[in-house]
Structure formats: C-alpha cells, structure tokens
Design a protein around this nucleic acid. Structure first.
Length: 479
RNA sequence: GCCGAGGUAGCUCAGCUGGUUAGAGCGCCUGCCUGUGGAGCAGGAAGUCGGCGGUUCGAACCCGCCCCUCGGUACCA
C-alpha cells in the first residue's frame, strides 16, 4: 500500500507551461539580440554560492534574511543567489584574466525567501547587463541606451527611462543639513515618492504615521525645515533634461560636491542627446533614488507608459564598490537588470505577446498504419527544410481525434495522407485557423463536414515548397 | 510583519439553523460520426470538502491551532 504523493510545489514557486515559456523565450531572444549588438557577452554562474559571498555585500546585509540556504555533502554554508550582480562581482575578482572593461549579460533565475505577492515569486528570472571596469559616463549612457533599444525592440508602445544619481542625492543631504550616514534610510523613503506622493513621504521622513490597517510606519525624525529643503529639491522638474540641469545648478550653488554630481548627469544627458535619445524617452528625474544601498553613481529605471501599474520593469545603476570586498581594489561597474517576469506580465497584459503553446507549424496525421513510413518521411522532409513539424504519435486512430489534438495545441497546419492521397500522389493540407474562423458561422455538422474549411490538396512531390507557401499565407493573414 | 476575506472535482462555484450514497456549469474521456477539429445530443471518469485536534449519536457546516490563497499595507537588493 503505497501512499500517493500529492503533486505540488513549495510556496512562491511555480511551473511555467508552454504558453508562458513560448512568450518568455521570444521576449528573451529579442533582448539578447539587442545586448549582443552592443557587444555584451554571455556568462553563467552557479545558482549556489558560498553564503559568505552572498552575505558580505551591502545588498547581502539587506538580503540575509531572504536567502535560501542549501546543504551539500561537505556541509559547507551555501545559499541560492538572490541577484546576478553579487555573483558578477565575485567572477570579476576570481577570474583576474578577464579583459576590462568587461561587458557581460546574464539571464538566469534568482531566489528570495520573501513572502510571495501578486506577480512576486520566490524564484524569478533576471536579465542583467553590466560593464565592469570603467568609470566613463559612456558606460552609463550605453546602459540607458540599451534599455531604450530593448524596450523599442519589444514594441512596448511608450516607455520612459528616468535617471538621477547618488551624488546628486548626497548633495541634497548636504543641502538639507542631513548627516551622510542617514542616506540609506532616507533614499529608501524617497524612492517611494512615485507611489505614495510627497505627503506621505514627508510624514515618513519626520514623525511617521499610522496607515489604514493600523500598521505603524515609523518616522525618520527629520526637522520640518530639512524636509522643506528636500521638497524644494524635488520641485526641480522638467520634461527637458537640460532644463533640470540648469535649475539644479541654481539651487545647489555653493554646495559641496554638487558641481561634480551635476556634471555627471549632464554628461550622460549630452551623450544621449547626441545619440538621438531625446527628452521624449529619457528624463532626468531627481526623485529616482533606488532603494539599494550599494549604488554609488548614476541610477536609472524604466516604466511602461501603457502599463504603469506594473511598476519599473527595468532598473539599475553604478556600483563602484561591490568588487572591492573580494579584491581590496576598487573596480567600478555599472549595469541594469530586467525583471523578466514582470516585463512579461506587462507585455502579456498589453497583448504584445503570447498565444502559441508550441513551436510546431505542421502536424502530420497518422491515419493508416501501413503508411507510417510515408508520413514519417514527410515529417522529416519538412523538418530538414527547417519547418517545425510534428508527427501524430498518440493513440487516437481516427482523424477526428487527431485533428482535435492539432486544434488544441494551436498548430496552424495539419497534413492528411491516407490511401486516397497516396493513390493520387497528393497531400491534403488543412489550415486550422481558417476552420476556427468559419466554425462560429456554421450551424450543422453536415455543413461543417461538407465544406471542410481551409482545406486544399497539394502534390506530394511539391510538399516542402507548397507547405512553405501556405504557411506564409497563414502568417500574412494573422498580421 | 500588520489588517481583512477565503480554501468543496482540472477550472469557476453552490451546499438552508450539523442529518444517510457531497452537487452544478465548464473542461476532460466515450459514442452518435469505422477519413475531418467547431456546434448539438447521450453517456462516463474524476473529490482524504486545506491539515491536525476537539464538541457531537452524527461535522463540508460548530470550536481551537496550523498551513495555504486572494485583497490592502509594509518590505523589495
């Protein structure tokens, strides 16, 4: 008496079925193509890292409680990576022969043992691109340009990349008379500005407040005069980057470190203008903070204008200190990360992607056991011509069942080849989409069988050429 | 973490104040149709009623604890 095992996965984990994987792969392929035209190279790192590699960093400290720990036979302290940036820092320190600047991309799952939420899982995929070993603003510019080109290539229909810099924020602290060591907390609160508005941010910076559910949000205890200065800074807004730079220079006149910070964001803006990334795509938005502690320079993120509810789908920044703790040497780096799951959810929501559950374009029916070698030959003929083809190898013996399978999997074309066809030297091709379209207009079964919608006969001899032609037509009709 | 609502078939849900063999629609399978997907008609398979414990002659229903899901809030590298 064996107890049956309940099929299930642990909290916050999920299976990705063909429909989602097809969409995801097509999205990832598009992104990869963009990055490769920029000359970024792929790498892969283990899912499992030494716990000390993961926990030592600024990010690690914040992350420690949400690391999945793992055991091995040697009983070493191990954990699953929670992002791709910390492993990259390790790689840079460990593989000293790598050329610098080193530009890499990596698409891989990461794990965080947080409480799952809508659209937030414990295993999710990130797509990162980074340039390591250069202080040049051109590297930051390229990351921003890459974000734009990626979103253009994905045809997201309107997006905005916004950037600022940590140096600018450091200057605000000076401007408002706030000690630098409070920066992390304050930036974390400022980062919420978009979501909750200045009112709540202001409260959280000073006295704190109690939200609707009775939850207490503790304040940071700033003076009202300090918050007022922050408010003044946040009032510096314009659709035009050059305008923001000018206003900032006025406001920060005489502030220590301000001019250098301003020159940094100005340079990036100038490069972007020169490359055709205008104010319609990239904004210098001073409210961008990014919660992450390890950023040291420019920070950026991107939102979709037609799907703002999905939040920022792309984010990043410069982190010049991350490699230091492995190498004791300052290795500057800048990069960005796409939340693959979030972006995919947004694209699906916008109807930009999805639908197919298989790459198969043609299903060859297996109607007559004595013709098995013939249909098998046809199948491989099509495959060798590069047309994704499947031969029906299930148990259903009748045509109806096999067509139903074709219908369900969403294959565009079905091939029928029985004794009738063989005698005449032909193949019957069925355009299943055409049938789907006709079906709603039909009443009786007689009519349905009589018409045989979307069906035509081709010469067996011309199989590949004809199938190719019909597929091209089908695709043209879809578009 | 905090507040609230839930958990009954693959999916969506019904199940009166506790009462015998727990239901519906969709989906799935089979047949009508032995070479045509849809629609239609007929039939069929499928559930430890989230888990554990308690109250009771008797629990899907009442009580306790736990787990999970959803909504809000916090966190989000």
């Amino acid at each position: 008496m064996s107890q049956r095992v309940k099929p299930r996965v642990s909290r916050g984990l999920r299976d990705l079925l063909p429909e989602e994987m097809m969409a995801r792969q097509s999205m990832v392929d598009t992104i990869r193509r963009v990055y490769e035209t920029y000359g970024f190279s792929p790498i892969s790192t283990p899912a499992i890292e030494y716990l000390e590699v993961l926990t030592g960093s600024a990010a690690g400290e914040e992350a420690q409680h949400s690391i999945f720990t793992v055991s091995n036979p040697e009983e070493e302290a191990l954990g699953l990576r929670f992002d791709l940036t910390v492993p990259l820092a390790r790689v840079m320190a460990q593989h000293r022969a790598l050329p610098r600047p080193f530009r890499r991309y990596q698409v891989a799952p990461v794990w965080r043992a947080d409480k799952p939420d809508k659209g937030r899982y414990r295993e999710f995929t990130q797509f990162d691109l980074d340039s390591v070993g250069t202080v040049s603003e051109i590297a930051d510019t390229e990351i921003i340009a890459g974000m734009c080109d990626t979103l253009d290539a994905l045809d997201v229909g309107g997006y905005r990349v916004r950037y600022s810099s940590r140096q600018i924020l450091d200057a605000v602290l000076v401007f408002a008379g706030i000690p630098a060591q409070r920066s992390v907390d304050i930036f974390r609160v400022l980062d919420k500005l978009d979501k909750v508005g200045f009112e709540k941010v202001s409260k959280e910076l000073t006295t704190g407040y109690q939200d609707k559910s009775g939850d207490v949000i503790r304040g940071l205890g700033l003076e009202h005069s300090q918050v007022a200065r922050i408010g003044k800074f946040l009032d510096v807004r314009s659709e035009q980057r050059s305008e923001v730079v000018d206003q900032l220079r006025d406001l920060f006149a005489g502030i220590e470190g301000a001019e250098e910070a301003i020159r940094g964001v100005e340079k990036i803006s100038r490069h972007l203008y020169a490359l055709g990334y205008g104010d319609d795509k990239v904004t210098l938005d001073l409210s961008i903070a990014r919660g992450l502690a390890y950023y040291t320079g420019p920070v950026f993120e991107a939102n979709l204008e037609q799907a703002p509810q999905f939040g920022s789908v792309f984010g990043g920044g410069r982190y010049d200190g991350l490699v230091m703790r492995f190498l004791g040497e300052r290795v500057p780096a800048t990069g960005a990360s796409i939340g693959v799951d979030r972006l995919l959810a947004a694209l699906t929501h916008l109807g930009k992607i999805g639908g197919r559950t298989t790459a198969t374009e043609v299903l060859v029916l297996n109607m007559d056991p004595s013709l098995e070698d013939d249909v098998l030959a046809m199948t491989f003929e099509l495959r060798r011509a590069g047309i994704p083809t499947e031969l029906y190898i299930g148990t259903a013996k009748n045509v109806g069942k096999q067509l139903k399978y074709a219908d369900r999997t969403g294959v565009p074309l079905a091939l029928l080849y029985g004794s009738n066809e063989k005698e005449q030297g032909i193949v019957t091709v069925k355009d299943l989409d055409a049938g789907r379209a006709r079906s709603s207009q039909m009443e009786s079964r007689e009519e349905w069988i009589e018409e045989r919608p979307g069906q035509q006969e081709i010469r067996r001899h011309d199989l590949v050429a004809e199938v190719r032609r019909i597929l091209a037509n089908v695709r043209a009709n879809e578009a």
